[in-house]
Design a protein around this nucleic acid. Structure first.
Length: 506
DNA sequence: CGTTAGGGCGCTATCGCCCTAACGGTGCTATAGT
């Protein structure tokens, strides 16, 4: 079959981008596939095209509501109508309508949380599933182990659905994350199509500052000089908001902030304004990024450094998708090291909270009481657990069968709590290690590009002309032309300026 | 680490100061009925 012909007929593209055809052919062949394709190479085509060609319904697990809505809308605008997203935007009635006739759809987008509902699983069991797709599959590894544990149940579900061809697709995953994805999904055989994370058109720079005030002053300097549009990453919401205001006070226009605390409407608005070019700069937390399809982002600044190399690569990778020269700047000062450590520690239940849970469960068990929804609420309130931590806890209590169909196994409580403590400790160690890797990268004195490629088990084959601060790069090409000129003029004395103007005839 | 919220205290205080503890980032869901 001529895949190119179908590609043209359905999507209007004449040729495949690197990797797309290979992935599609493997899927059409019935293989399970792990694919890592660079950002901006049209990852969704990899499953959309075979989903439309194959018999049955493709299930696409997607991490964000906005991603699902985006893709459904895009497909519909291309005349592909048999697509749907099952999520909380739907009314009960709408949801029921779709679930009752799932087989009529070619592609159904769904969150891992919705996917775990018994109604949905029941409906899925009775239809033919063409593909089981995990979009942004690094979420399994990055989020599944902590605050979105439903990601860890996908493997079991896939088995229950009789193992239809599975595609796990992402832009950024180390070898270790790739292994984790395959293991969590319980894929017995997998065909991997892994392409380079190398982004030659993004120049890398890291700067050290003695304290936070110096950093703020320099951020303002950089932002005034750099050619936009740009993204500035912070690791707290308050910082993102305050610096957006500060930049506006400095006379920089079209700046907004974005973080998970905004309501859906505002988030959508800012995304749209940034994509449409009405905003030049977004000060954001790591909430901003996935699903932002903007080609011409010229720079990404990290005011705070991300928690691991993968996140760094993901975030700087939002620059220069059009292939034009772009700039990634990381601003570091020593006191930054403590924030991520403390974030991590509050993420999972503490030992004290776990001891409290243990007491609570033993009390229920002694009285021969069932574990009800009220108990979930009580535990969360009494121990002061975040929602993420609570879900982490429930996931492991259920997985280790301390709580099984509302029954509590008294003999297992103590051991399980201990083993959860162990899991948390391992998890913390891993994450702290990742932060150290990040700080090592920042403090290293070798080529930045070679360093991160090595981290992803790749070799630097060809060094771009404008590489990194260690290899030397000419910053001028990333500057805002107008401001660059006026800065030069400002340094001149008035009579020099006049002379300049005469000679340049401006 | 830095910021902030909240409690205690002084002893002219429905105020102002100081100290301490807590927090800091990512997202999904809701199974009924006019």
């Amino acid at each position: 079959m001529k895949l190119e012909k179908e590609l043209y007929k359905i999507f209007g593209y004449k040729i495949f981008r690197p990797g797309q055809k290979e992935v599609i052919e493997s899927l059409m062949n019935g293989d399970n596939v792990l694919a890592m394709l660079p950002t901006g190479t049209g990852k969704s085509i990899c499953f959309q095209l075979p989903a439309l060609l194959l018999q049955g319904t493709a299930i696409v697990v997607s991490p964000l509501l906005s991603l699902m809505e985006d893709q459904v809308q895009q497909l519909r605008s291309q005349g592909i109508k048999k697509v749907a997203a099952i999520n909380s935007f739907l009314t009960f009635h709408e949801k029921k309508m779709i679930v009752n006739q799932l087989e009529r759809y070619d592609i159904v987008y769904i969150s891992p949380e919705s996917l775990m509902s018994n109604t949905i699983i029941g409906a899925l069991s009775s239809i033919q599933i063409s593909l089981f797709v995990i979009d942004e599959a690094h979420c399994i590894s990055q989020w599944g182990h902590d605050f979105r544990t439903d990601y860890l149940k996908l493997g079991e579900l896939w088995e229950r659905l009789n193992q239809p061809p599975c595609l796990a697709i992402t832009a950024t995953a180390t070898k270790e994350v790739q292994r984790d994805i395959v293991q969590q999904l319980r894929l017995p055989d997998v065909t991997t199509h892994v392409y380079s994370v190398h982004r030659p058109n993004i120049a890398l720079q890291i700067e050290n500052y003695s304290d936070i005030d110096e950093k703020i002053i320099n951020l303002i300097k950089w932002v005034k000089k750099l050619k936009g549009p740009g993204l500035i990453y912070f690791s707290s919401r308050v910082w993102a908001e305050n610096m957006a205001a500060r930049l506006q006070n400095e006379g920089i226009h079209n700046v907004a902030f974005y973080h998970g605390g905004l309501d859906n409407e505002d988030r959508l608005l800012i995304q749209q304004q940034f994509i449409n070019g009405q905003l030049d700069i977004v000060c954001c937390t790591n909430a901003f990024g996935m699903g932002i399809n903007k080609n011409n982002v010229r720079y990404v600044i990290h005011f705070h450094f991300p928690q691991h190399m993968e996140a760094y690569i993901q975030e700087i990778g939002r620059a220069g998708r059009d292939g034009e020269n772009s700039f990634a700047l990381l601003m570091y000062c020593d006191e930054d090291r403590f924030l991520p450590l403390s974030l991590i520690e509050h993420e999972l239940p503490s030992r004290k909270q776990l001891d409290g849970v243990k007491k609570y469960l033993e009390m229920l068990a002694v009285s021969n009481l069932l574990f009800t929804n009220d108990d979930v609420i009580n535990i969360q309130a009494q121990m002061g657990l975040s929602e993420g931590a609570l879900r982490f806890l429930l996931f492991h209590l259920e997985e280790q069968k301390v709580i099984d169909q509302s029954h509590i196994k008294k003999q297992a409580i103590s051991n399980t709590i201990n083993s959860i403590k162990q899991i948390i400790e391992n998890r913390l160690n891993k994450k702290i290690n990742k932060i150290h890797e990040m700080v090592d990268f920042i403090n290293s004195e070798t080529c930045r590009r070679m360093y991160y490629l090595t981290y992803f088990d790749e070799k630097l084959l060809e060094k771009p002309e404008s590489c990194c601060d260690q290899c030397g790069l000419s910053i001028e090409s990333y500057m805002n032309d107008n401001i660059h000129q006026s800065n030069q003029l400002q340094k001149l004395l008035p009579w020099e300026q006049e002379l300049m103007q005469i000679f340049h005839q401006k």
